[in-house]
Amino acid sequence: MSLLAVEGLGISFGELHAVRNVGFSMKPGEIVSVIGPNGAGKTTLFNMISGIYLPKSGTVHLGGEDVTGMSPHLLARRGLSRTFQNLQIFQAMTVLENVMVGYHLHERGPVIADLLGLSSSRRRSHEAEEKARMLLERVGLVRAAEKEAGSLSYGALKRLEIARALALKPKVLLLDEPAAGCNAVETEEIDHLIAELAADGIAILLVEHDMKMVMRISNHIVVLDFGEKIAEGDPATVSRNPRVIQAYLGTQAAEVTYAVG
């Protein structure tokens, strides 16, 4: 059975049909990429799946449950987590604290215990800190743990967001352009990280412009153009599809063919 199933999803802003009738499904451990030109509706699709926009039509099922239009914090409890194209970092908090907020669902407890600084509250914080440090280790940021997040480089912030999203132990992870603005080395690191996460059984939905990366790591690709799905399939099939080449790949076709082999 599919872990995440999107069916006939659509939304319009005024006259503009930003996304129309888009559907796909994903299984645990699968990497599905959504590609398409700028303005094709990729981020809008993400925002509908993650509960930020209320879709006008269609459904989203997570683990068999209808979660269409459900609030993000409720989706988080059901194991759906995401990162943002335009970084949503808690800038004034430390790197460590950013990830600890990611553990909110595990570390939260009675407010009165937090106010009184009871040992139960301190223990919850302590456990979250230990786990957060381990995650920072995993994304290579452990040495920056005590720094203010705002002082980090763009690439480091991208990894910090992934660490924070991982903290809630998601079953489904939505990554919106994780490699944008990263140099070649950083891109490769993120590439490895995504493959590792998928190997752990997390279903990963990816929006990314780096076609080499997309073609290399995706199991399945959904192509959007003007808010509609124009093709889907495995990387080799999609990269040979004439509509896809015309709409999007165009000049990149040569290097994609090279990447797919």
């Binding site: 993650s50 930020i52 609030s71 993000p72 914090h73 989706l75 988080a76 409890r77 987590s81 995401r82 943002f84 949503q88 970092i89 808690f90 907020v101 990611g102 909110h104 669902l105 924070r164 999203a165 903290a167 809630l168």
Partner: peptide, 9 residues
């Protein structure tokens, strides 16, 4: 938005 996506009500 980020707080909501990590489960903060």
């Amino acid at each position: 938005i980020a707080a909501r996506t990590v489960g903060v009500d």
